[in-house]
Design a binder for these strands. Structure first.
Lengths: 207, 207
DNA sequence: TTCGTCCGGTGATTTGGGTCACAGCCCAGG
DNA sequence: CCTGGGCTGTGACCCAAATCACCGGACGAA
């Protein structure tokens, strides 16, 4: 695929450089792209699909932070890249995905030479930071029912489909909750006429 | 005070520029430095004191994210500054504090011209991002007792004193909990010999 | 077709923590 | 010296959510 469509704002010189130096990789849905503690060697740009960025703790709990979509980049990989550090998060392909991996050592030069890259990096930081803020808001101030609604809203936004093809268990994992709780809350939402429940699928009622 | 001591890594040219263009301001403990929704006109560097960065929600709840200390900068103000956006957080002086405010319009040039500034900004992003990550970890995975211990640990680290001069109510506010809960958990910690409780003061037992 | 496994539904019970009520305290200001 | 307001301690109660137990239904592999 032609990756340039996803990044129309990049300058010709920058595009050339990326074309020459970056590596394109494919991942299948469910593949782990980056794991906690792993050393970062590249900055990741998303071309296609959907990447889930989440945290994992020692006793198996996990917690979804946000999704990355085509045209976006992983802020963590940028930060770590520039400082040659290790990642503190997990990244997993939620759908089959294509990404562009730009070697760490190019970052400094790109920042200096290409205004459009600099802007892109700043914008990425801001975007992810804001998303983290709303994550904090949610867990700090909201109850599970509101968090679930937020989750569903975000899911349809990001996946671009009207239905969630996902099991209750997976939602529970993403919210670091348990299946029974999610099932019961979904049932209540169904009673309120917000969704219709099927096996492995939640249909959103547009109203 | 001589602010340059806090930022020994800055280049001479950068120091000169800041000296010429930045404004130094004092705040008393309790003063609000920045509030949610406010338009950002300057990047904030901390010279002295301690700044508390927290989130506030509509129904009066608040939630401490992290502290800024001398030598650190507010990542939010940088991000917003570069993009001329509004702040999504609150900043309050926890102690009497001195800060340096660098006008937004200088940011781009400083990033391009001064390597040390560029490094500083990157480092700031990384630091705050990491802190936000550990905040998320705490509320997502930990119970109140562990969160309280983390709070105390961080407090003594940041304040540089062995004792917390703070009421239970203030702790409860910072953790978005309630006084009774904090009092009870502190009492348990006292029984475990971790702290000694006084009025408006918690003494840490070093062991 | 049948069996095993994943999925969802539902009740019972437990628990962490928020809320209410109230009492005793220390301390500052009159 | 007294008094009123902020701080802390504690019991009673409640609620959201986690956990446990169990069921039946759907679906895929043999």
């Amino acid at each position: 695929m032609n990756w340039k469509e996803q990044f129309p704002q990049f300058e010709p010189g920058l595009i050339e450089l990326i074309e020459k130096e970056a590596v394109q990789r494919s991942f299948n849905a469910g593949d782990i792209i980056m794991r906690t503690g792993q050393y970062i060697k590249s900055t990741v740009l998303v071309l296609e699909g959907r990447i889930k960025i989440y945290r994992e703790n020692q006793d198996g709990g996990e917690f979804l932070m946000y999704y990355l979509q085509p045209g976006q980049a992983c802020a963590v990989s940028m930060i770590c890249a520039i400082q040659s550090g290790t990642s503190e998060i997990m990244a997993m392909a939620e759908d089959d995905s294509e990404v562009l991996m730009i070697p760490v050592h190019l970052m400094d030069d790109m920042m200096n030479q290409y205004k459009s890259w600099y802007q892109f990096v700043i914008q990425t930081y801001r975007g992810r930071f804001d998303e983290l803020l709303s994550v904090v808001d949610n867990i700090a101030f909201r109850n599970m029912d509101e968090r679930l609604e937020f989750y569903i809203k975000r899911y349809v936004e990001k996946a671009g489909k009207k239905n969630l093809e996902i099991s209750h268990q997976q939602i529970a994992d993403d919210l670091n909750s348990s299946r029974e709780v999610i099932s019961r809350l979904l049932k209540k939402m169904e009673q309120r006429g917000l969704v219709k429940l099927h096996r492995n699928m939640i249909e959103l009622i547009s109203s």
